[in-house]
Write a protein that binds this DNA or RNA. Structure first.
Length: 564
RNA sequence: UGGGAGAUCGUUCAAUGGUAGGACAACGGACUCUGACUCCGUGAAUGGGGGUUCGAAUCCCUCUCUCCCAGCCA
């Protein structure tokens, strides 16, 4: 597993832990957990939590458990469990043998519930959902006690047992904590602990028809596992008193501490699981691993590296402010990592034919091209050079503006790791007027990349040999949305979908060495960006590339400004 | 509206009574067989108003704004 950069641990959570250790709380032990509900694929927002929890555990030489918080059978599945396991592993974290499921605690939780009933702290309620809502009151008005609130312990015990036995219909009965219907914190108004759902659970099957609610299950699961610091997101702040209440009421010896931090938001993307599910179901994207998705599986397929994501999670920091992190930071982290690791190769996305008139017809030279300009240890490969080449369409302009460093009639450029070539004339399609071929001469003395007479060229462009190049399909991805904060702009953020988030390029040409390159491997196409192999066409062995991220391009930026 | 939480460069995270700093973004320059990379530099912030103090981002008061809570979701 590749290692990321060293963590820079300093945030309010670590301050709390330092203080706890100083005070000997939990005997100085640190135990965290990452507790996803397996009802979707994990995304970059989960990565923040994963890095935080596992990072803290590592820093304090503690442990971090992976726990499936599967207390609601609706929407949960083994497919999602598997995606979580795969992606957390991929990120580079190891929970050793500590993979747990809240569903494994169902019996224990049931016994805790029985205990609460016996202590007179919970009761079976027969209010309908509508009545329950009505009894709950509002922000400004206190709630009303349920008529069932003062049942005897014996009756509650009996009813709860029968709930478990399946005697009642969904929604007809609930088990509720007896707290305070007048609490200003609505979470504390006799919250539901168990509901009846005669639904098959992906792990426990039909064994249970009552399922514990989050607030009841989570704190006790933490306690069972000996978690010391239960780190969750800000929306659970209101639930913290309840977290503590259940721990106290259940009379457990171990009392974890809940700490909340702000969840991640990234500009131009949406990280709401509900919405991601919607994109998949509506076919807005091709699936959970669509390279445009902010899911870890999508990002992996796009060519993101675990190290880049870990680095990002460190750089964004941990705080309690609502924040919207600039996508540019994520891309910067990725470029930082890829810049070190990605081999450089030659590829042409939009080919323009070049004929070198003074180069022999049948001659082929194998030019030595290093894989990384600053890392000779990465080695090199031989790339064929011949009379007919293809260059990037963008690298030739018939009427170049002043600061254009590339090819134009009468101008000379260097072919990367090749020769200087000079454009002598162009061939146009008589019908469209489009430039379809450019004719050049080369200077045989410039093979080293330099001219013996010391003359310089403005630009160096990339190329492939026509006779040797491999055809490839290249998919260019862009942000899924065209507003920075789609989820805050409107309830239905699909109004802000970027229609150009995917562009498929056929007829791209890559250097021969990329023939049959392994799926998942990543490269930098010189001057074009970072690309990763999505798949290899089984019949032609032709690679299909995803563009991982673009290179910074000051020319494009200048051109964009100048054009306006 | 009741309760909870938060407000620092464009963005994000620091600074916990003593020179407001880093990263990303922006801009400028140097270098360059990738207009990349790298390096150097510049501009840029304490939500408003009071108070305490020799000194306040930090403590107090007040105002404003933002987010979360009225699922038998998590």
């Amino acid at each position: 597993m590749d290692q990321g950069k060293t963590p820079v641990p300093s945030d309010f959570i670590r301050d709390i832990i330092d203080e706890d250790i100083k005070n000997g709380k939990h005997q100085g032990r640190v135990a965290t957990r990452f507790p996803p509900e397996p009802n979707g694929y994990p995304h970059i927002g989960h990565a923040k939590s994963v890095c935080l929890n596992f990072g803290i555990a590592a820093q304090y030489k503690g442990t971090c458990n992976l726990r499936m918080d599967d207390t609601d059978p609706t929407g949960e599945s083994m497919e999602f469990v598997e995606s979580i396991i795969r992606d957390v592993k991929w990120l580079g974290f190891d929970w050793e043998d500590r993979l747990y499921y809240a569903s494994d605690y169902y019996e224990k939780l049931y016994q805790f519930a029985v205990h609460l009933i016996k202590m007179g702290r919970a009761f079976v309620c027969q209010l309908t959902p509508d009545e329950m809502r009505e009894h709950r009151g509002s922000f400004t008005e206190p709630g009303k006690d349920s008529p069932c609130r003062n049942r005897s312990v014996a009756e509650n015990l009996d009813l709860f047992e029968r709930m478990r036995a399946g005697e009642f219909e969904d929604g007809s009965h609930t088990l509720r904590a007896k707290i305070d219907m007048a609490s200003p914190n609505i979470t504390m108004r006799d919250p539901i602990m168990y509901r009846i759902k005669k639904e098959r659970h992906y792990r426990t099957g039909d064994q249970w028809c009552i399922y514990p609610m989050y607030d009841f299950a989570h704190c006790l699961s933490d306690s069972i596992e000996g978690i010391t610091h239960s780190i969750c997101t800000l929306e659970f702040e209101n639930n913290r008193p309840l977290y503590d209440w259940f721990l106290e009421a259940a009379d457990v010896e171990h009392r974890p501490q809940q700490i909340e931090f702000a969840r991640l938001n990234v500009s131009y993307t949406v990280l709401s699981k509900r919405r991601l599910i919607e994109f998949v179901e509506k076919g807005i994207v091709a699936g959970w691993d669509d390279p445009r998705m902010p899911t870890l599986s999508g990002m992996r397929r796009r060519g993101y590296t675990p190290a880049a994501i870990r680095d990002f999670c460190e750089r964004i920091g941990v705080a309690k402010n609502d924040s919207l992190v600039d996508m540019a930071l994520l891309e910067n982290c990725l470029r930082d990592d890829l810049n070190e690791k990605a081999p450089r190769v030659l590829a042409v996305l939009r080919p323009l034919r070049v004929v070198i008139e003074n180069y022999p017809e049948d001659k082929v030279e194998m030019l030595d091209c290093p894989y990384h300009p600053k890392k000779p240890e990465m080695g090199s490969r031989k790339v064929p050079f011949s009379r007919v080449l293809y260059i990037e369409k963008d690298d030739f302009l018939e009427n170049p503006p002043k600061k254009f460093f590339r090819l134009s009639v009468g101008r000379e450029v260097r072919l990367r790791y090749g020769y200087f070539i000079k454009c002598t004339s162009i061939v146009k399609d008589p019908a469209s007027g489009e430039v379809i071929e450019i004719r050049c001469t080369y200077d045989p003395e410039t093979k080293s990349g330099f001219a013996p007479d010391g003359r310089k060229v403005d630009g160096t462009i990339h190329w492939v040999s026509a006779a040797h190049a491999v055809r490839a399909e290249v998919r260019l991805y862009d942000r899924l949305f065209n507003v920075p904060d789609p989820s805050r702009e409107d309830a239905d953020c699909t109004d802000f979908l970027n229609p150009n988030s995917l562009e498929v390029l056929h007829g791209c040409l890559v250097e021969p060495g990329l023939n049959g390159a392994a799926a998942g491997s990543g490269f930098q196409f010189e001057r074009l960006g970072y690309f990763s192999v999505d798949a290899v066409d089984s019949t032609e062995q032709a690679p299909v590339f995803n563009r991982t991220v673009t290179l910074r391009d000051s020319w494009a930026k200048a051109a964009e400004k100048g054009g306006k």
